[in-house]
């Protein structure tokens, strides 16, 4: 098992830092899956995580100037590590004006992801700051838990409203209720609703548009375009997802399986992020 990589471009470094920071706001621990072409940050939708799942995919070529990986074996050319993304985010943030950042897998007193930032100096002496981030190497027999989740057979798929507006609304709704109903139809309409003993609040978004998913997407006929499909979710989980977003994605989509799951997809230029929130009764 061997992994070493290097980022020189400051833009790439900023982008990678931004991605890791976003991930760190979504979850305390996650799995980093490294393949020769891609990096994945994965949270499997286990009960321990409250059923929330995450899948974030980055193409290494978009970020790294050097990327060498030797996996567990030739056949399984991958490395799977469990880490706290906050640690990686913090290490990268201190390296914001670095000339180069090296990230490699090392064996110290425990397995570590070592981030070495070469900082600019006035003299000829080089200055390197090194962070060792402890990781757990995930054995191969458990890899199945961290495969790409299959696209749920959703009942409705819709583009999301501007995330900042949605965040404001969800923030207030969280003050009022623990649960939120999100509903949408194939006519570009989405509603966010809460209801308590004191108050009921509904926010209506319209003209959002529905993504074209080819033939195998939603099987809705023209007739029931207006039918609302809903999922009741924990407000905090939705809020956490919205809080983590630092930049507007090029596309934000929301798929709902009636009373079962809320599937959020954000597409950025060089990153894709999927987030799964289970519905509650």
């Amino acid at each position: 098992m061997k992994f070493r990589s290097k980022i020189i471009d400051i833009g790439c470094l900023n982008n990678f830092t931004r991605v890791v920071t976003t991930i760190s706001k979504l979850t305390k621990t996650c799995v980093l899956r490294l393949t020769p072409d891609n990096l994945y940050f994965v949270l499997s939708g286990k009960v321990a995580n409250g059923g929330v799942g995450m899948w974030c995919e980055l193409s290494q070529a978009n970020f790294f100037d050097e990327f060498q990986l030797e996996g567990v074996s030739v056949k399984a050319n991958e490395v799977c590590l469990e880490l706290a993304p906050e640690n990686l985010s913090r290490a990268l943030r201190t390296a914001q004006n670095a000339k180069a950042v090296k990230i490699k897998l090392t064996k110290k007193h425990c397995p570590c992801l070592t981030v070495a930032a070469e900082l600019p100096t006035m003299s000829s002496m080089s200055r390197v700051v090194t962070h060792d981030i402890p990781v757990d190497v995930i054995p191969r027999r458990l890899w199945n838990d961290f495969q790409e989740p299959s696209m749920p057979d959703f009942d409705v798929s819709i583009y999301m409203p501007p995330l900042k507006i949605m965040k404001n609304v969800v923030d207030r709704m969280k003050n009022l209720s623990n649960f939120l109903v999100i509903e949408a139809n194939m006519n570009g309409e989405m509603n966010l609703k809460i209801e308590t003993d004191l108050v009921s609040v509904t926010t209506h978004f319209k003209d959002l548009g529905n993504p074209p998913w080819g033939g195998d997407g939603s099987q809705h006929s023209q007739g029931d375009q207006e039918t609302m499909v809903q999922a009741r979710v924990d407000v905090r989980k939705l809020q956490q997802f919205l809080m983590g977003q630092q930049f507007n994605p090029s596309k934000a989509m929301c798929n709902i399986v009636q009373n079962s799951i809320l599937h959020l997809i954000l597409l950025y230029e060089d990153v894709s992020l999927q987030y799964f929130i289970p519905a509650v009764a």
């Binding site: 409203p161 507006i165 609304v169 003993d197 004191l198 108050v199 009921s200 609040v201 509904t202 926010t203 209506h204 978004f205 319209k206 003209d207």
Partner: peptide, 12 residues
């Protein structure tokens, strides 16, 4: 209403 988005609140 703000920016075309409408919210209806019923406060008991």
């Amino acid at each position: 209403e703000e920016g075309g988005v409408v919210t209806v609140c019923k406060i008991n």
